[in-house]
Amino acid sequence: MIKVSILYPYRENGRFDVDYYCATHMPLAAKLFGPLLKGWSVDVGINAGPPGSPPPYVAAGHFLFESTNDFYTVFKPASEQLLADIPNYTDGGNGAILISEIKISV
């Protein structure tokens, strides 16, 4: 199982519409990815450890797939529509992508 994470760095005075991201963008991606997508979630940054410190990331979206090939298969045809939606929830650009292998799940 692999996880594709899109990490959106925190920027002071940056715009990130968490409600839009959770209610519109991520469900759109899930619909476009279809049955090869095994699950998705969103993390919203709170802080960097010490109370009151800004988080390193304002948000992270996560998608689960059986393999990287499954992700690449569904992302390529959906990428144009998903990338075009980014300005609807942030003024910070695309975010960084991390593809990781899940070793343990409970």
Rank of each mutant, 00 (worst) to 15 (best):
M1L: 11
M1F: 07
I2P: 03
K3Q: 11
V4S: 04
S5F: 05
L7T: 10
Y8C: 01
P9H: 06
R11E: 13
R11W: 07
R11P: 00
N13W: 10
G14Q: 11
R15P: 00
F16W: 08
D17S: 06
D17K: 14
D19T: 15
D19L: 12
D19E: 15
Y20K: 05
Y20V: 14
Y20A: 03
Y21K: 06
Y21C: 08
C22F: 07
C22N: 13
A23E: 13
A23H: 13
T24E: 09
T24N: 06
T24P: 00
T24L: 04
P27E: 09
P27I: 15
P27F: 14
L28W: 03
L28V: 08
L28S: 04
A30Y: 11
L32N: 06
L32F: 11
G34R: 14
G34W: 14
L36Y: 07
L37W: 13
L37S: 07
L37H: 11
G39L: 10
G39K: 13
W40E: 02
W40K: 04
S41Q: 13
G45Y: 12
N47P: 01
A48C: 08
P50D: 08
P50T: 14
P51V: 13
P55S: 02
P56G: 03
P56M: 07
Y57A: 04
Y57I: 11
V58Y: 04
F63G: 00
F63S: 03
L64Q: 11
F65G: 05
F65Y: 14
F65T: 10
T68F: 10
N69S: 12
D70L: 04
D70R: 08
D70S: 06
F71W: 12
F71T: 02
T73C: 02
V74C: 05
F75L: 02
K76S: 02
P77R: 00
P77D: 01
P77A: 01
P77N: 03
A78H: 08
A78C: 07
S79K: 11
S79C: 03
S79P: 00
E80R: 10
Q81L: 12
A84H: 08
D85R: 07
I86E: 05
I86C: 03
P87D: 08
P87K: 10
N88K: 14
N88Q: 14
N88A: 09
Y89L: 02
T90Q: 06
T90Y: 05
D91H: 05
D91R: 07
G92A: 05
G95M: 10
G95Y: 10
G95I: 13
A96P: 00
I97T: 14
L98I: 13
L98D: 03
I99A: 01
I99E: 03
S100A: 06
S100D: 03
I102Q: 12
I102L: 09
K103D: 06
I104C: 04
S105I: 10
